[in-house]
Design a protein around this nucleic acid. Structure first.
Length: 317
DNA sequence: ACTATTTCCTGGATGC
DNA sequence: TGCATCCAGGAAATAG
């Protein structure tokens, strides 16, 4: 299940392989697709776009796109159809300050698009079982393939997701916002502020992407173990010192996991089809009943907000 | 403004 | 062997 380290690994692998390539055409599956934007919108944005960069934001993979040459089609289509930024898109409208400069739908940067290179973004969330594969056109189309992008290099970029928790969307310009703060970039002050006045269990707070983005179930449990904090502890009752330890633990765990290519649980593999190795470093996750590596006390498993949570009852308070 | 719970979805594991 | 049931998980939607 891809969390920050896995998504980072995948994004780096993709960046290596497809940066600079041009998307020539797009096929999207029928069905109730796992699309957050409409299929037409996605296809329109992707086709004839050049992939400038691939990077990670939280658990999202973001493809930064540039218009490749000709593409006037989209521009004219856009002005013909003044969409009020569809509610289904992942774009968050920032602060809704009704400031003096009230922008009407009409006339906002009208001619700029003619002269400037239009940029857009393709945002992929892998959910639990989503995968992006780069392959030759003749390689077998796996079951549950929901999108196929034909690249100018002759290869294909495919999105496969059996469980369909993954999501695809597009954003105009570079406006995608992933939610909370990046754990690896956070300082202690920002981190403390996240939990101030929150009565929710610290485990739930760590998983809340609007606060901290990228941490999922595995890394939340591992971080809490390293910091010696029980997952059920109310966030607001945890001391500054303990939270500072927690931030350090979160960063350590994520960095170590990235260095090992992520955790391969079930069928996770990176862009090269390689498994990660961080699962071998798990100290509590998936170790219910096994002895704590520090004190030998059996690891407990409880359910918090519907998520299984693993901890050592002696080492974590 | 928060917090807790339910829902989505399918493959793999388990149990009879 | 085959069938039913349960479980995993992130995040959006819903309910409190």
């Amino acid at each position: 299940m891809p969390e920050l380290p896995e998504v980072e690994t995948i994004a780096r692998g993709l960046a290596k392989r497809v940066s600079g390539d041009v998307i020539e055409s797009v096929w999207l599956g029928q069905k109730p697709e796992p699309l957050k934007s409409s299929a037409q919108e996605i296809a329109a944005v992707l086709e004839n776009s050049r992939i400038a960069t691939v990077r990670r934001m939280g658990k999202h993979i973001v493809f930064d796109l540039e218009r490749a040459g000709v593409a006037r089609a989209l521009l004219s289509a856009k002005s013909r159809n003044p969409k009020p930024s569809r509610p289904g898109s992942t774009v968050r409208p920032g602060r809704a300050s009704s400031a003096p400069h009230t922008e009407t739908d009409k006339g906002v940067r009208p001619t700029q698009a003619e002269t400037t290179q239009t940029t857009a973004q393709w945002i992929v969330h892998l959910g639990m079982t989503g995968r992006l594969q780069v392959c030759e056109p003749q390689s077998e189309v796996l079951k549950h393939t929901h999108a196929i992008l034909k690249l100018a290099s002759g290869r294909e970029l495919r999105f496969v997701d059996p469980r369909r928790f993954g999501r695809l969307s597009v954003a105009r310009a570079a406006e995608f916002e992933a939610g909370g703060i990046e754990p690896l970039e956070a300082d202690v002050g920002q981190f403390l502020a996240l939990f101030r006045g929150r009565k929710t269990p610290i485990k739930s707070a760590l998983l809340n992407q609007k606060l901290l983005r990228g941490v999922g179930n595995i890394y939340a449990d591992e971080s809490l173990f390293r910091a010696g904090i029980r997952p059920r502890r109310r966030a607001s009752t945890i001391t500054r010192d303990q939270l500072a330890r927690l931030l350090t633990a979160v960063k350590d765990v994520l960095r170590e996991a990235i260095a090992l290519g992520g955790s391969s649980i079930s069928d996770y593999v990176d862009a090269d089809g390689e498994e990660g190795f961080f699962q071998l470093q798990h100290r509590v996750y998936g170790r219910e009943g096994e002895p704590c590596l520090v004190c030998k006390t059996p690891i407990k498993r409880i359910v918090i907000a519907g998520r299984s949570s693993h901890y050592c009852p002696k080492c974590q308070r």
